[in-house]
Every structure is written in structure tokens, then in C-alpha cells.
């Protein structure tokens, strides 16, 4: 087999050279090679959103991308958003609104919400935007649609919505 080119990946500001099996997903790289198990594997097929991380500021499913393809990329995981003694506004709001139960989808929900807030700030439309060319209204339906890539089987959706709204309305950085 040909020599696999290495990939230098920065995770939460820490660089790592990946030279291993090219089959390794970014998700398994984070969980195994980097020991960052905050990013969860729920389906491994882009169907649940539990593995959501931000790459160069954009949310993606880390299960459906190869680690080796991320040379030069900056990855932000839940651990990069905040730890128990330094929780971000979103993380705090998830706690106070009980925006989770079992907690397994939670890091993905929070990473997704953080990136969503940025997308809205940049004026991205969604499927439920009345006019895709206009400004998105920040109503509940918009947030629900934009968060629909993150399943929560415990059914904490109403509380997740409340947590996100609180942060968006406060203008705090996520």
C-alpha cells in the first residue's frame, strides 16, 4: 500500500499528527487517539448528531469524515467549549433548563447549538424561513428546524430549546 500522508489536526488548540489507518473516522480519532470521549458515537452513520463537532467553526458529523482528511483543520469539541469548572453559557443553560437526561446526545446538541448560533448571526436561512433571501426570524420553529440534526431519545427537546433561547436572547457568547 502507498504511504498515507499524515494529517496535522488541531483539537481545541492542541495539535496532533495523525499517521494511522486512513479508515479512522474523525470521531474515532478524537475518542481513541486523543482520548476526548466527550464526542459521542450514537449511530456512526450521520443519523443522530451525537458526534457533532466544529471544524473550522462549522458543525459536522465527525463520524462521517476521515481523520486523515483534516490536515490543517481546527477542531473544536465539547471539551473545548467548557469543562465542569469553566462551563460556557450554553452548557450552563443546558444544566439549568434540564436540557438533557441521559446525557449521551448532549455534547453533540451543545456543539450543534453553538455553531447554529453563529450561522444565524451570519444570516443563514433555514427550510422554515419564510423568505430564504431575507433575514431569519428567531422564533422557536427556526431553532427546532436548525437543531433537527441532533436526536434526543430521552425527549428533552423542549428544554433544549429553552436553554438555547436563553443564551441567544442574552447575547452571551455560546
Amino acid at each position: 500500500m502507498a504511504q498515507t500522508p499524515a494529517a496535522r489536526i488541531a483539537v481545541n488548540g492542541v495539535s496532533h499528527d495523525y499517521k494511522g489507518d486512513p479508515r479512522r473516522s474523525l470521531l474515532d480519532f478524537l475518542r481513541r487517539d486523543f482520548g476526548l470521549t466527550g464526542t459521542k458515537k450514537g449511530c456512526d452513520h450521520g443519523q443522530c448528531g451525537a458526534c457533532t463537532v466544529m471544524v473550522n467553526g462549522r458543525r459536522i458529523n465527525s463520524c462521517l469524515t476521515l481523520a486523515v482528511m483534516h490536515d490543517g483543520d481546527e477542531v473544536t469539541t465539547i471539551e473545548g467549549l467548557g469543562m465542569p469548572d469553566s462551563l460556557s453559557a450554553l452548557q450552563k443553560a443546558f444544566v439549568s433548563h434540564d436540557g438533557f437526561q441521559c446525557g449521551y446526545c448532549t455534547p453533540g446538541q451543545i456543539c450543534s447549538a453553538a455553531a447554529m448560533i453563529e450561522e444565524i448571526r451570519e444570516g443563514w436561512p433555514s427550510f422554515v424561513s419564510v423568505d430564504v433571501a431575507g433575514h431569519a426570524r428567531l422564533d422557536d420553529e427556526e431553532i427546532r428546524e436548525r437543531m433537527s440534526g441532533n436526536l434526543c431519545r430521552c425527549g428533552a427537546y423542549a428544554n433544549i430549546l429553552a436553554a438555547i433561547k436563553e443564551v441567544m436572547e442574552s447575547g452571551a457568547t455560546s
Binding site: 450561522e119 451570519e122 436561512p125 430564504v132 440534526g149
Partner: peptide, 25 residues
């Protein structure tokens, strides 16, 4: 889907893309 030109002139395309998959995908 987020491109201003697409949204202005071909909103159908934006809308269809936004109907598919999830934001992450």
C-alpha cells in the same frame, strides 16, 4: 444554500438544499 446570489435569484435551490439532511451533513 446560504449564498446571497442563490437566495436572491434561485431561492428554490436554497429551499431544496435546506430541505435535505441536517445542517451538519
Amino acid at each position: 444554500a446560504a449564498d446571497p446570489q442563490v437566495r436572491q435569484g434561485w431561492p428554490l435551490l436554497s429551499r431544496a438544499i435546506l430541505a435535505g439532511a441536517s445542517p451538519q451533513l
